[in-house]
Simulated assay, not measured.
Amino acid sequence: MVWRCRPVVPGWFTEGGDDGGFRLLGTRCTACSAVFFPREDVHCRNPGCRGGGELVEVPLSRRGRVWSYTDGRYRPPAPYVSDPAVPWEPYTLVAVELAAEALVVLGQAAPGVGIGDLAVGMEVEAVPGVLNEDAGTGTVWTTWHWRPVAA
């Protein structure tokens, strides 16, 4: 079977398979320089922006610092896929501050990273991840994960 990779939400991250080229994608207002993620393609969401400039796509910083984290002990809603017949395994959510963009981005930790592996202020990086694999259609749904940066 030939597997096809598809982003969970098109346009939110680069689709390059290697870690070196992977980046979250946001938008920046040309009038006020505010950066948005998820991306904004209609109008500037900054209430202080007077001009409402053009919104241009920008790659976000690959690395940031843990702002907060927690473990998810419940089955999440769609688009996450969860088979009720399979025992539930907790997952780790990480809120990461991207200083250059002045925003916090939420995402899952990379596989194998739990709350015991994280600390507020720790440096992490965005890496490609898999949300779900559908053997019936041969589709791999891709997303991003946060992974601690090796010291």
Rank of each mutant, 00 (worst) to 15 (best):
T139F: 03
A31V: 09
V130D: 07
T139P: 00
G11Y: 11
Y80P: 01
L106T: 09
G48Y: 12
G136K: 14
V105C: 03
V124M: 13
T137Q: 10
R75I: 05
P148Q: 11
T142D: 02
R63I: 03
L25K: 09
G53E: 07
E89P: 01
L106M: 12
L118I: 09
M122A: 15
C29G: 05
G52W: 12
P59K: 13
R63P: 02
G48C: 00
P111N: 06
V149A: 07
A102I: 00
E101K: 04
E54T: 10
G64V: 07
W88P: 02
T14E: 12
A31W: 12
D83S: 05
L60H: 07
V96T: 14
G21C: 08
V86L: 11
G17Q: 10
V104E: 02
T14Y: 12
A109R: 04
C5A: 13
L98P: 00
G116P: 04
P76W: 14
C29K: 06
G48H: 13
G17C: 07
T70S: 15
P87N: 07
P148W: 13
T14V: 11
G121H: 05
P76T: 09
A99S: 06
R28T: 03
M1R: 14
T143A: 11
L106C: 01
V124E: 08
P148A: 09
R23I: 03
T14K: 12
E54H: 06
A95L: 15
V81F: 10
S68D: 10
A119M: 05
E54C: 02
V120T: 15
R147Y: 10
E15A: 07
P111G: 06
Q108K: 14
T27K: 09
A119Y: 03
E125F: 03
R39S: 13
L118C: 08
P148C: 08
G51V: 08
L98T: 01
V8W: 13
T142Y: 03
W144Q: 06
V42W: 09
F13I: 02
P7L: 06
V9A: 11
A109N: 05
V124Y: 10
D19S: 02
D83A: 04
V104P: 03
L106Y: 12
P90W: 12
A110M: 01
P90I: 05
S61M: 04
E101V: 00
W12I: 05
D18H: 11
V2I: 15
T92P: 06
G48T: 02
M1F: 15
F36K: 00
A100M: 00
C32G: 08
V81A: 13
G129H: 04
A31P: 04
G138C: 11
V35C: 03
G16N: 12
E101H: 05
V94M: 08
T30C: 03
A85S: 15
W3R: 15
V66N: 06
R65I: 01
E40I: 00
E97Q: 14
R23M: 08
G114P: 05
E133H: 07
R50G: 06
V127R: 15
P148N: 09
V8S: 14
W12R: 13
G107S: 09
A95V: 13
G136D: 15
D134G: 00
L93R: 12
L93Y: 15
R28E: 11
V130A: 10
A100H: 02
